[in-house]
Design a protein around this nucleic acid. Structure first.
Lengths: 154, 154
DNA sequence: GTTGGGTTGTTCAGATTTGAAGGAGTGCTA
DNA sequence: TAGCACTCCTTCAAATCTGAACAACCCAAC
């Protein structure tokens, strides 16, 4: 087979791709087991809960979630049906709309958070020593910045 | 907001979850741009190409890919339509079937691999120093082992 | 042998995701 | 102030993915 990564790199890449998939799958399963939320639901709620006036433009939300625009439209619609968010049209740009967290949504987040965070801790964080955590933070922060910059500058 | 991860842990977790999603999205886009394959297609082909007699039981393949059984059934069917793999029934267990790599599939993999690996290198590997790579390998290998063990022992 | 509990993949219906196309609005430029 | 290129979000059809239900088979205990 053609190789343009050496063995060390390949081992690193494979461990990452497989394990991160397993981790996501496990977290999703845990979250669904102790809440009515999926992982994407949860991430939407977190971002909204931290935003000023608990609302975000659709585009901004999509970009932070790494969702396609149409995926976000669909996803927000399903969350709207469940009362977790509402959509409001944007006063300063009438093309735009914003997703706004509801009291129900905030409550759902508050109830799910401890379980979910415990799950993150149990499956990932508790296993990392300080140096490893620092390393992951540094590597992935850099990676995210680089990928975001690459997209913006196209 | 309820917090059961401290700031350091939270920063680590968020950087990881967002950046790994961005990375996958970027690799998928690159791969599609210079081949007819999706990332899942590619992973199927890699695993088959490395297996003895270039074939694997559906269950084994699903478990390594972190696919649900029905997802693999569907996915192998689409790949079969494109001539990348064929399905053969399993001689030693008549319930089972195996996915077998075809010459077309191997060729597709060989053509896609250099581009894909270059893409992995460009977006991730080139940015890691030796210590970081060792750290990622160690962390994710351990994580994968732990998650796999947890699933097996349920 | 044969019954019954487990395993292996598939199927099906429904949910989600994608990507192309479109409606509406913005804002620059002549 | 009209035209026009662009952005924002949605819509639609088609592709993909999930989970429950199922058919076929294995195997160990009777």
């Amino acid at each position: 087979m053609v190789e343009s990564l050496d063995n060390t790199q390949m081992a690193c890449w494979r461990a990452f791709i497989e394990s991160s998939q397993r981790l996501i799958t496990q977290l999703e399963e845990d979250l669904r087991a102790d809440s009515e939320l999926s992982l994407p639901d949860y991430h939407v709620l977190v971002l909204l809960s931290e935003a000023p006036r608990q609302r975000l433009r659709m585009g901004e939300l999509a970009s932070r979630l790494v969702f396609s625009p149409s995926r976000l439209t669909y996803h927000v619609s399903t969350m709207e049906r469940r009362g977790l968010v509402v959509r409001e049209s944007c006063p300063e740009d009438r093309r735009g709309s914003q997703a706004v967290l509801t009291a129900t949504g905030l409550l759902a987040l508050r109830e799910a958070a401890p379980h979910h965070l415990a799950s993150v801790r149990r499956h990932l964080m508790d296993d990392l020593d300080e140096a490893e955590m620092a390393c992951l933070t540094r590597v992935f922060t850099r990676l995210g910045d680089r990928l975001t910059a690459a997209r913006t500058s196209d």
